[in-house]
Amino acid sequence: MRVRDTNEILLQVEGVALSFGGVRALKDVSFNVRKGEIRAIIGPNGAGKTSMLNVVNGFYHPDRGTITFKGRTRDRMQPFEAARGGIARTFQNVALFKGMSALDNIMAGRTLKVRRGLLWQALRCGPALREELEHRHRVEEIIDFLEIEAIRKVPVGRLPYGLQKRVELGRALAMEPDLLLLDEPMAGMNLEEKEDMSRFIVDVNNQYGTTIALIEHDMAVVMDLSDRVAVLDHGVKIADGTPDEVKNNHAVIEAYLGVAH
């Protein structure tokens, strides 16, 4: 049940600036994400896309500007608060827990939903065991959905890159987020893996109504998947609109072809 036609704003980023020493990664960027849509952020290397996501989920604190998520405005947030508020993400360079199995990685994504404390978990009986089983069932659904049944017990460090990306998506899904941030979910994948991943993204959006903001370099994928596209270049938003609008935008073409102004 897709709700992309509502105009309700889930996330509003307003006038955000961020710099690292002398490098100004973001200069006064504003954009929004509507509830239920798939929103793409594109731009050349070093444009500030990853920095943008990091600001949204509290990993970086912006120098200026505000973030309004689900109606609450703040100028900074702690990563774990963002997680509790319903923001999940994956990373450009997979950030899995290397020593743990695929199953445990995804189970770890359930942390915020766990109710029983230390003593119950140590006893692991009655309500604690029931709760653990409930989480396991939920996680197994995700494992089925992502078609990674065969590798659930494998330590993720031993998995090929494409599967690691899938497990990482699974871990984010286990959080049952309202907003899912995906940083180049298809980087380094072959065509078939990209197709699988695209399918998962669309299905997540359709089945669970999860709002998705994704960074991607593959234009074909972006044009296919997304409802709206924002384009960053040198820390500035140079275009924003439907895939078609963006495709024909002069500033965008120049930024990508590297034509001098």
Binding site: F80, L96, A108
Partner: peptide
């Protein structure tokens, strides 16, 4: 799992809550 997550990658651990 929380302990191991902190051990393996504390930043990612924080981002899942």
């Amino acid at each position: 799992r929380q302990w191991m997550a902190i051990r393996d990658m504390d930043i990612a651990a924080e981002l899942i809550g």
